[in-house]
Amino acid sequence: MTGKNSSVTEFILAGLTDHPGLRMPLFFLFLGFYMVTVVGNLGLITLIGLNSHLHTPMYFFLFNLSLIDSCYSSTIIPKMLMSFISKNVISHSGCMTQLFFFCFFVFSESFILSAMAYDRYVAICKPLMYTVTMSPQVYFLLLLGVYVMGFSGGMAHTGNIMNLTFCADNLVNHFMCDILPLLELSCNSSFTNELVVFIVVAFGIGVPIVTIFISYALILSSILHMHSTEGRSKAFSTCSSHIIVVCLFFGSGAFMYLKPPSILPLDQGKVSSLFYTIVVPMLNPLIYSLRNKDVKVALRKTLVRRVFS
């Protein structure tokens, strides 16, 4: 996996800070974030698996969102934690592998959020047709599309970076092998490479955002035509968690990748990256658990069964 003309066989990840006094506090802070992320997402996966009334398309997608978030954070955080306690060296092939899985999970999350928006559109705008429209075959095909797009995005970005040459400098100014710091480090990156990154990211963010926007425009129109206040309230409640997650994920991702590096320096970009790689996967299960009545009921029933069994 080493580039054809590269003299670099390994990279050093700079991490978040050069200040020795901050390293241990940050290590324990992000270790705590990671534990909350893993426990929260695996807990939601287990809860959906154990409760048959949650075996619906909406929770089927939520199950996969939690699975993606668990894998996504595990791709990034363990390696980042090493930079707080030692020199964080990663091989060229290891760096490309991390980059691929990072891109794979980012693209998969983008498209699964758009699939969830479509599911909410069908549930609210066409409730009588819901079981037919969102049949098992349909949501399995949607899920297949999610992972195919994730794989395509990962391959496009990784192939683009693997064609670059890294000559002497091997210090990556980031806590992970991300696209922009690797482009900056390369001694032969060109406008074409940057254009490929922009097009792939614009597609991976743009298509889901357009899908989500259209879905929620139709949902809002349907809600405004409802005569029942209770029906409106229930519809808004059903969508609110998903809207919060969408805004957090796409807002931070677009801020990082759809601005030229001259406008957003990499040191500031690292802070933006923290948000969508660490904070968002940690918050997702909390947002869905705290704002979802079905999840809270399932959690209560599961705990009662465990206590009295």
Results as ranks from 00 to 15, higher is better:
D18E: 14
M82E: 11
N163W: 13
P78F: 00
I77H: 02
S273C: 11
C95R: 01
V210Q: 06
F275Y: 08
T133V: 14
A156R: 15
T133Y: 09
V38P: 02
A254C: 14
S66R: 01
I212K: 00
T302L: 11
R23P: 10
A298K: 04
H157G: 11
V307Y: 08
T37C: 04
S83M: 00
N173I: 08
G40S: 02
D119L: 10
S52G: 10
S237D: 06
T158P: 02
S7L: 11
S241F: 04
S86L: 12
S135R: 04
T133W: 13
K293C: 10
L185S: 07
Y147S: 04
D294H: 10
S190C: 02
N173K: 10
A202Y: 04
G49I: 11
T238V: 06
P181Q: 02
E109C: 10
L113G: 06
N64C: 13
L54E: 01
L142R: 06
I12S: 12
S241A: 09
F249L: 14
S74C: 05
G159Q: 15
V210R: 03
L65D: 04
L144K: 09
A235M: 05
H242F: 02
M82R: 10
I45G: 07
K87I: 12
V245M: 04
A254E: 06
L29K: 00
A14I: 03
N163Y: 15
K270S: 13
M176V: 13
T56G: 10
F104N: 12
L286M: 07
S189A: 14
V148F: 15
L31R: 00
K4D: 12
D178K: 04
F255Q: 11
S240F: 15
V295I: 14
E230V: 08
L266C: 07
C177V: 02
A202F: 06
L67S: 11
L299N: 03
S6W: 05
I76W: 00
L29E: 11
F101I: 06
S309G: 14
P181D: 03
S7K: 14
Y288I: 07
D18N: 14
G253D: 08
M162Y: 15
L99C: 13
S215W: 00
T56H: 03
V271D: 13
F255M: 15
S93Y: 12
G40D: 01
M80G: 00
V106S: 08
I212V: 04
S70N: 02
L22C: 08
